[in-house]
């Protein structure tokens, strides 16, 4: 066995020595470009045919027009029309289903999945794209410290959608000049805050919220949006929202 091992050893030395002379491949030049996937491109007919039955089934439920959007609503920071619309309707729905008053509503910015809601007909599918998750409205009972922490976190992320009952300014990443229903935060009070169960469970780095008692409403946020839109339509009203300065960014 020993001679054999030695010959392997010599072969190993030879091979590694040869390595320097062996031809190898190297990356030499890179060229980069992008295709914009617009209507000038052809479509693959086999894949189109495959998708057709899925789209037909989808259209049966998702193509119904349930309301009219008055103007293009957009999502932005610190405050936006789309954010205001959603936070306000979540607050109203929470108040409708809860036996005690709810003070405010907040939504995580990243949980709103479209940045724009087009003016014109609002179809069910658009609401699914806005809120594809099966998140339900949850009411968390916060003490004054917890509420301050929540609003500071929101300020630190440059503003999330909040309901009309909130007024605050963002100064150096913190919430200042806070009013809840026109009143400063009272240190001895408890506040009932409607939010997606996702953040109530600590999502989006809101882990501190796990320490507070919560109440499930069993109403999906998406269903609340659908119901609100249908109610507006029944009243002959469009879906609409305005900016009212509920969150102002003070840094210049």
């Amino acid at each position: 066995m020993v001679p054999q091992a030695r010959s392997w050893f010599i072969l190993l030395i030879l091979t590694s020595g040869l390595g320097g002379c062996r031809m190898t491949w190297h990356e030499a030049t890179h060229q980069y470009g992008q295709y914009q996937m617009d209507a000038s491109l052809e479509s693959d007919s086999a894949l189109s045919a495959y998708l057709l039955p899925f789209r037909e089934r989808l259209d049966q439920t998702m193509n119904d027009t349930i309301a009219r959007v008055a103007r293009k609503l957009t999502l932005d920071k610190p405050e936006s029309t789309l954010g205001n619309l959603l936070a306000d309707l979540v607050l109203d729905e929470a108040n409708r289903v809860s036996d005690q008053p709810v003070d405010l509503a907040v939504l995580n910015y990243g949980g709103v999945r479209r940045n724009e809601l087009a003016a014109g007909p609002l179809r069910v599918g658009m609401v699914y794209e806005l809120m594809p998750f099966d998140n339900q409205i949850t009411i968390v009972e916060l003490d004054a410290g917890g509420l301050t922490e929540l609003l500071d976190q929101i300020a630190g992320q440059d503003g999330w959608p909040v309901s009309r009952s909130v007024r605050m300014q963002i100064l150096e990443g913190r919430a200042t000049a806070v009013l809840i229903n026109n009143q400063p935060i009272e240190s001895e009070r408890r506040y009932r805050v409607a939010m997606p169960d996702y953040i109530a469970h600590g999502g989006d780095r809101m882990t501190f919220l796990r320490d507070f008692p919560l109440q499930y409403t069993n109403v999906l946020i998406r269903d609340a949006i659908l119901q609100y839109s249908r109610d507006q339509q029944a009243l002959g009203m469009p879906v609409d929202a305005v900016l009212d300065g509920r969150i102002i960014s003070s840094q210049e």
Partner: peptide, 30 residues
């Protein structure tokens, strides 16, 4: 909405490093 495309040319030589390497990306403006 976009498909990205990077073309990479490899060269074969006896060096441990390549010879015609261009460290910068070339020709990619729109």
């Amino acid at each position: 909405v976009t498909l990205g495309r990077m073309d990479i040319w490899f060269e074969k030589n006896y060096r441990s490093k390549c010879i015609t390497c261009s460290p910068e990306l070339i020709a990619d403006t729109f």
